[in-house]
Computed example of a mutant assay.
Amino acid sequence: MLIREMVGQTFGQRWHYQHLLVERVPFAWHYHPEYELTLTRRARGMRYVGGDVAPFGELDLTLVAPNQAHTWQAQSRADGQCHEVQVIFFTREWLEQLATGGLPELIGFADWLRKVQQGVVISEACTRKLVPLFDALHQSRGLDRLSRLLQILDQLPRDHEARLIGGAPTPEYQDKRVETALAWLHEHYREPVTLADLATVTRSSEATIKRLLREQLQDSMTGLLAQLRIGHACNLLITSQMPIQLVAEESGFPSPSHFYKQFGLAKAMSPAAFRKRYHLRRVMQEDAPATQSALVRAGVASHASP
């Protein structure tokens, strides 16, 4: 199930910072109305943002747009080190208020945010430049922490090698009925769903909710369902040996043939080819020699986890 994450606020400000040290990063579809800027260190795995599924390496920085289903997934490291995750949540409304209230330098960044679709994968070169600022953000407090945040945000539009994740741009205003529809779809995407169900939940007509999804998300109910279901299926293909027909069923697709068709359209390959390319067992086998060599050079191979 995909859950709505309640982010909250940091000391009454309309942004929030989290620092996590974890042994592994589990697959956990979630979404929230804030932008999320996540720096992941010392981890290797798969990143899911909307309909985009891609591997990430030891250093990853990604901006996720509001209300986009997303998660990262990484297994425990062989050397026993923890993955480090730094997350910044913020809203565009807060930045625009700052811009009009005395910080016009933020106008350009707010304009850039309007162009963000599902998210942005920041280039490795830019990420490495930003790592010291993330370190400083973690150590600082008060106005100094806010200053570090603004310095980080200022660099993002300057990354000309960043990869925009496709999809509908974040709308300027989102109808409450669309928010209700998204929340319900995120909770029930593995079940049979009809437009009539969505109309009932949002207390609107089928024509109205269909129009609102098209106008505000540039998508349809079937498109949103396919995105959520394919993301779920990708996780099962990557992490298990579950038969593909069962993957289709567990992900909410009405039939294997529909699953094959939708998956091929989204990923330009078959589910079997996707599993062969990205399955964790294969990735770990390919990474094992390099990991073991690095442990031997560091003198800690004998302490590595099995």
Score class of each variant (00 low, 15 high):
5 E>C: 10
15 W>D: 01
15 W>E: 00
24 R>S: 13
25 V>D: 07
27 F>C: 06
30 H>N: 09
35 Y>I: 04
38 T>I: 12
44 R>N: 13
44 R>S: 11
48 Y>F: 12
52 D>L: 07
54 A>C: 12
56 F>Q: 03
56 F>V: 07
59 L>N: 08
60 D>Y: 06
60 D>M: 05
64 V>H: 03
67 N>C: 08
68 Q>E: 11
71 T>C: 10
76 S>I: 09
83 H>E: 05
88 I>S: 05
93 E>H: 12
103 L>M: 15
106 L>D: 00
107 I>C: 12
108 G>M: 07
117 Q>G: 05
119 G>S: 04
120 V>C: 02
120 V>Y: 01
122 I>T: 02
127 T>W: 05
127 T>P: 04
130 L>M: 14
136 A>H: 10
136 A>F: 06
138 H>A: 14
139 Q>D: 14
141 R>T: 13
142 G>H: 09
144 D>G: 08
146 L>Q: 14
150 L>F: 10
153 L>A: 08
159 D>I: 05
160 H>D: 13
167 G>V: 01
169 P>H: 05
170 T>I: 08
170 T>V: 10
172 E>T: 12
174 Q>V: 08
176 K>V: 08
178 V>D: 04
179 E>Q: 13
181 A>V: 01
181 A>S: 03
185 L>I: 11
185 L>S: 00
185 L>P: 02
185 L>N: 03
187 E>T: 10
188 H>I: 05
193 V>R: 03
198 L>E: 02
199 A>F: 04
199 A>V: 01
200 T>A: 13
208 T>R: 15
212 L>V: 04
218 Q>W: 06
222 T>P: 06
225 L>Y: 00
225 L>Q: 03
230 I>V: 15
232 H>S: 14
240 S>A: 06
247 V>G: 00
248 A>I: 00
250 E>K: 15
250 E>N: 15
251 S>Y: 01
251 S>M: 07
251 S>R: 01
253 F>Y: 14
253 F>W: 02
253 F>R: 01
254 P>D: 07
260 Y>D: 15
260 Y>S: 08
261 K>V: 08
263 F>E: 03
267 K>T: 14
271 P>M: 05
272 A>Q: 14
276 K>D: 12
277 R>L: 09
278 Y>P: 03
280 L>Q: 15
281 R>Y: 11
286 E>R: 14
289 P>E: 09
290 A>N: 10
295 L>P: 04
295 L>N: 13
299 G>Q: 03
300 V>D: 10
305 S>A: 13
306 P>G: 09
